[in-house]
Nucleic acid binder design. Structure first.
Lengths: 186, 186
DNA sequence: ACATTTGTCGACTGATTAGTCAATCTAAAA
DNA sequence: TTTTAGATTGACTAATCAGTCGACAAATGT
């Protein structure tokens, strides 16, 4: 792992633990095992670091999900795969997922303008629109559908995090939740 | 409005605008029109202020909802009233609702231990349990149901905030969302 | 071999911050 | 009227923090 990645990993850990407020750049550098100045070599300001970390996480998550989708599947399978893989990833990367939420409900969110992230979201919305046009999903605004799926994802993740079920029960719950969601949208 | 309330109002405004990180206590005091020391008279530390503000908002929201429920209604009406009133309140108190989310997904959340808030949540869970026992709501874990309702609430709020519909369309969407949620849970 | 860019270091600084404190004010009780 | 307890003030401080800078090292190109 190179220094830049070490910095991101250290920042993730400390931001989730102590918040943006509670983590000085000096402690991030220390945790990453680099000098103070090195951090500012890669990220000119603390805000840059905070935003870059968010983008980096979202990109990693999107990559994971994109790797799992199989071509030529029907809508339900496609959405189900994405939903379930997103959850798996979230459960295996709790800190990352928590950071995403922390960032998203903070004022830093307003600083975000990433073409890459926009592209991913456009793709998701496009998939939803296609499913609506093909009369698979109910004819409701795309943003509405998208928000519903996202908040379901957050909700079930929060539940699973607290409930601490064994793996079998957990997978059952995930599949069941997608079932409820799918019935709701179709 | 007395000084203590002025402090809470100023803190809310600035925390939502600039985050916990970006708002010094000195600016809160200034915005509230009180001296620096007065703030620390009411809230010994900045953390105290942050947590107290959260509790104060949740309590105000719960009070509003409690005022609207009518006795002797069936389960659907009861849940619908609560769901809709929660949304109305959220739409009319955007800053407060945003603060709640900001706080909840931050590490400050771990500091929270309020008997009053616990009591409100217990009541909600109790209502859900009763509806399950009476076979109105599906037999799933109470926490699961609770999480589903909460995340629906967050999702639809986020959608409405961004979509900026006129009042009629907004009310329609709210009613429709509750419909979908209710069908899912029963 | 040399030159140039890029990465790394850590001591340093100017500005800012949470929280203190002794003095003053207010209002109601005794 | 006098006492007393809480409310209010704002100057003050000790500590902390984001970001700089000049020196040096490593890698890369010529």
């Amino acid at each position: 792992m190179d220094k830049q990645q070490e910095i991101l990993a250290a920042a993730l850990k400390l931001f989730v633990e102590n918040g943006f407020h509670g983590t000085p750049t000096s402690k991030i550098a220390k945790e990453a095992g680099v000098a103070n100045g090195t951090l500012f070599h890669y990220y000119p300001t603390k805000d840059d670091l905070i935003v870059s970390l968010y983008i980096s996480i979202k990109l990693r998550m999107a990559t994971h999900i994109a790797e799992q989708i199989t071509d030529g599947a029907d809508y339900k399978t496609m959405f189900k795969t994405q939903f379930i893989q997103a959850l798996y990833w979230a459960m295996e990367h709790q800190a990352e997922f928590q950071y995403v939420q922390q960032f998203y409900s903070s004022p830093y969110q307003a600083m975000l303008q990433s073409a890459e992230l926009q592209q991913i979201m456009d793709k998701n919305c496009h998939d939803i629109q296609r499913a609506i046009d093909d009369k698979v999903i109910k004819d409701l605004p795309v943003d509405y559908i998208f928000t519903m799926i996202s908040s379901h994802l957050n909700g079930i993740h929060q539940y699973l995090k607290n409930a601490n079920l064994d793996e079998k029960k957990q997978n059952e719950t995930i599949a069941q939740t997608f079932g409820l969601l799918w019935d709701m949208l179709t």
